[in-house]
Each structure stands twice: as C-alpha cells, then as structure tokens.
C-alpha cells in the first residue's frame, strides 16, 4: 500500500479526516474582570438562543459552547460572509479559590455573562486596625 492509498483509506474511515468548513469553530470575544467577590466572563455569542447554549464547569475549567440558530428562508445563496461558522467554543482554566458550585449565567441578546464567585472563606476581608 503506497502512501497515497493509505491517506485515502484513512479519509474514508473518517477518523483522521481534516475538519470540514462546517466544523469551523468561532471564538467568541470576551471581557473578563475580577472584583472583590467574583470573576465575571462576558462573551459575545450572537445568534445563540438559550437552548443552544452549553456551559460546562468543573473544578479546573470553564467551557462556553453555543450554536448559532437562525431560521432562514429556503432557496438562499451566499453573497458575502464575515462569519464562517455556526458554533462558538472557548475554554478557560480556573483556579481553586473559585467556587464552581455557585456559578451564575445569564444570556440576553446574544451576550452571555457568567459569574464565578470566590469561595466565601477566601474573599478578602478588611482588617481593622485598632488603636488604644
């Protein structure tokens, strides 16, 4: 079997096929900030409805995933495109002071806001200085 044939075979079984254009993953633009109590991620995911949004969180990572769903009339052809994919995905690693049990998420008009609070015992406390 020469190299050419082997490549073809591999493509036919599908396992090593290069991702097609359909699987092109969009990387949503995000703002991330931290205040005294939490870290907040704001992500632009236009076209994603609530039921097509998937937020996975475990101790070490946060994954945002969403699929663009727009009802389109039939018989359309493309003229121009800035947006070439239909799926958003982005991944962040988390650190242990975050309380991943208490994550809150809110999606409105294609804007996702995820708030991950810090563990209560690790939130900064103001130390009062006593004077006699």
């Amino acid at each position: 079997m020469n190299e050419q044939t082997e490549m073809t075979t591999r493509q036919e079984d599908g396992a090593l096929r290069a991702p097609t254009e359909r699987e092109l993953i969009l990387r949503p633009a995000v703002d991330i900030f931290e205040d005294a109590n939490a870290i907040v991620v704001e992500a632009d995911m236009p076209g994603v409805a609530k039921d097509r949004l998937d937020i996975q969180v475990d101790r070490n990572s946060l994954t945002l995933e969403g699929e663009v769903a727009i009802t389109m009339p039939e018989g359309m052809r493309a003229l121009y495109a800035d947006v070439r994919g239909t799926r958003y995905r982005r991944n962040f690693s988390l650190s242990s002071e975050l309380d991943t049990e208490q994550v809150e998420a809110n999606l409105k008009d294609g804007l996702l806001r995820v708030r991950i609070p810090k563990r209560a015992e690790l939130q900064p406390r103001k130390i009062e200085v006593k004077t006699d």
Binding site: A78, D82, L111
Partner: peptide
C-alpha cells in the same frame, strides 16, 4: 469590523444578518 455581517439572497429578497449582540 463591528458588526460582522453575512449577506444572502433568494429570488425574492436579499437578507443581511449583522452579528451585533447586546
């Protein structure tokens, strides 16, 4: 550029989709 747009056409209409969240 913001917002990114896609443009598609059918025989009856031209459709512009601007991805402008929030």
């Amino acid at each position: 550029s913001f917002p990114p747009v896609n443009i598609a056409a059918s025989d009856d209409a031209v459709h512009v989709y601007a991805f402008a969240p929030g």
